[in-house]
Write a protein that binds this DNA or RNA. Structure first.
Length: 585
RNA sequence: GCCCUUGUAGCUCAAUGGAUAGAGCACCGGACUUCUAAUCCGAUGGUUGCAGGUUCGAGUCCUGCCAGGGGCACCA
């Protein structure tokens, strides 16, 4: 938007610089702060610093201001701008507000549900996230990964990428064997109840405790592992059955969270190919095989001539069984071969940064052409107040199911109060959308690199900077449109003097496409979370200051258009965050 | 020891190298006969951990220090 006008200004300034024998520096466009008016600014400090014509004793800000005055003079009367002035070293160019508002709102209404989405980028990106372990619980700590990964996938999609959502489920390993062994010894024949994940998790905690406290049990687990390794049919059958219970529980949770996956990888699926991959590492002379006395490992620091940077990556146990790294390597290859992607993003918590770095480096040493296109999207963990790490063994966890149930219950009480006449089913649906939104928002609204401290009070707070606040603005917009009726006229011809609240709102509407691209480029949903809140706040300001339905005819018409455009932007930004926008609350 | 990361209002957090560092929560005082009060308005609250440096300009970039968190060979 306004590219023509910008080009015109840049041309003029370039000519001015040439005429004044000033260096031709690239211009920087910025928003003007404190504006009740919409415009763009150009700082002239850099130019002033380079200009020869000034007294060297004159401070730069003063030179910049002199220059700005001069430039503003030469730009006077330029078409498309209502006012051009020099302030504190900046040239401020104000757009004629009605024309600006008209352009923005027209564009939003034309694109409607697609406003904010970019044209296809040609990129095919896989985002791997969630990665739960079967036979374990899902707690709030795991939630951040799912929410972050889902939002990143949505945002990349909106930014024009073709996105493949992948999950990588840990369905085998020592934790599973512990569970199976404990089940066979102490719980044989028992079935999970309604909440499968909780039940599986409880049994895991029990097994894990036995494993640590009871040496006899540990021996039993080792024997059990050997049975798994020779694929004892009873063990395999039990594994298949119990794994299924876990998966059913996970899919229930994903459905509640509104997440779906295009491809689910399993660790069991890449176990064998991992061992083959390790063989090729040995043959390539990259890995050192010390079996049976030691493991198979890649001494990355030695290969790269580094010290204490990449360290040593162990890729196979000395007994020949597989490790995390063993499976991760062929999985990376599989992703590129299966989907012909050109970028692979791993949403994995920050504690695994070194491991991810090692795996990427090993793949690079194997000369995969795509090895430069692997990204670890690291995020910090979720702690409990007092910096307590969630641990099922210590019982310091908040189960997802408990959180969702409690949050939904609270939301439902409010819906009952505010909209007693709605159908019960609809009330529950609204309460779910609000509850899930309230849970998701705080995990998205901060930097990925910052620890989230979970506390019940904040999680259940539906006021202030929160998803319900944004959802509520959306509901208000919808409510106005509904009351206006279908025969209402939506006219995007704006009057010359708009209220500051209207200008501010229009400005925010115009920013959505750029914010989406920025969030996609940096893989930071927090930008959009902040944006959505700012937009909702701007809409609430407008709502309070500018009556719509009772406004005079022409004003009502353009305000209705503005409300409709706002509603699209609120909804679109919420959806990208993976948060639903209900019509009534 | 080496590496990563965080440090901004009482608390939780924003701020694309630019103009006067902003929100929410909490606390205090107001606004529902109104397009839904899950809202709004007002008040209070700051040496951006410390010290240098780069820059016309630093919360933001660089160096050092302090403090918290995390990681560093067969867990994932």
């Amino acid at each position: 938007m306004f590219e023509e006008e910008k080009a015109l200004v840049e041309g003029k300034i370039s000519a001015y610089c040439q005429q004044q024998q000033l260096p031709n520096l690239p211009l920087e466009w910025r928003a003007i702060p404190f504006s009740g008016e919409w415009g763009m600014a150009i700082p002239l400090f850099a130019l002033a610093a380079k200009a020869q014509s000034f007294d060297p004793k004159l401070p730069i800000p003063q030179r910049a201001q002199a220059l700005a005055q001069d430039v503003a003079q030469t730009l006077q009367g330029l078409k498309g701008f209502s006012r051009i002035e020099a302030v504190r070293g900046y040239v401020n160019l104000y757009f004629s507000t009605s024309e600006y508002a008209q352009r923005v709102v027209t564009e939003v209404l034309e694109h409607a549900d697609d406003f904010g989405s970019a044209d296809p980028s040609g990129n095919k990106t896989m985002v791997e996230y969630s990665q739960p372990n079967t036979h374990k619980s899902m707690h709030v700590g795991h939630l951040r990964n799912v929410i972050l990964g889902g939002a990143v996938a949505n945002i990349l999609e909106s930014a024009g990428d073709q996105v493949i959502r992948a999950n990588y489920i840990g369905d085998i390993g020592l934790h599973v064997i512990k569970w199976l062994c404990n089940y066979e010894l102490y719980h044989l024949g028992e079935q999970p109840g309604e909440d499968k994940t909780r039940w599986m998790g409880d049994l895991y905690t029990e097994a894990d405790r036995r494993f640590h406290d009871d040496p006899g049990f540990e021996t039993a687990v080792r024997k059990y592992f050997a049975r798994w390794d020779r694929q004892d049919p009873d063990v395999v059958a039990l594994w298949e059955q119990t794994r299924q219970w876990s998966l059913e529980g996970f899919y229930q949770i994903y459905e509640v969270l509104g997440e779906r996956f295009d491809r689910v990888y399993f660790e069991s699926e890449v176990e064998e190919s991992g061992k083959v991959f390790v063989d090729s590492l040995i043959q390539a002379g990259l890995a050192i095989d010390e079996r049976p006395e030691g493991p198979v490992y890649v001494n990355l620091d030695e290969l790269l001539g580094k010290k204490e940077e990449y360290r040593v990556a162990v890729v196979l146990r000395s007994d020949g069984t597989s490790l995390y790294a063993t499976k991760e390597l062929p999985l990376a290859v599989m992703k590129f071969e299966e989907y012909d992607i050109n970028r692979s993003i791993y949403v994995v918590d920050v504690r695994q940064s070194l491991h991810m770095k090692q795996i990427f480096k090993v793949l690079e040493l194997m000369n995969y052409r795509w090895s430069g296109n692997l990204y670890h999207l690291a995020y910090e963990i979720v702690n409990l107040p007092g910096n307590v790490t969630m641990s099922s063994r210590d019982g310091t966890i908040v189960l997802l199911d408990d959180l969702i149930r409690e949050s939904t219950q609270r939301a439902l009480e409010i819906v009952h109060q505010k909209n007693p006449d709605l159908q019960e089913e609809l009330k529950l649906e609204i309460a779910r959308d609000v509850a899930i939104g309230a849970i998701k928002y705080p995990m998205l609204a901060r930097e990925n690199t910052k620890v989230v401290t979970f506390d019940w009070q904040t999680a259940l707070d539906f006021n202030g900077q929160s998803a319900p606040y944004i959802q509520y603005a959306h509901v208000r917009a919808g409510s106005i449109l509904r009351k206006a009726g279908i025969e209402a006229s939506f006219d995007v011809r704006f009057s010359a003097d708009l209220e500051p609240a209207e200008i501010n709102l229009v400005e925010l509407l115009s920013k959505l496409p750029a914010e989406v691209l920025r969030a996609a480029r940096e893989l930071k949903p927090s930008y959009l979370a902040t944006y959505a809140y700012d937009l909702a706040k701007a809409f609430n300001d407008f709502y309070n200051q500018c009556p719509v339905l009772n406004a005079p005819g022409p004003v009502k018409a353009y305000r209705l258009a503005l409300v409709r455009a706002s509603r699209h932007c609120l909804k679109n930004s919420l959806h990208m965050l993976g948060i639903k926008a209900p019509d009534v609350m």
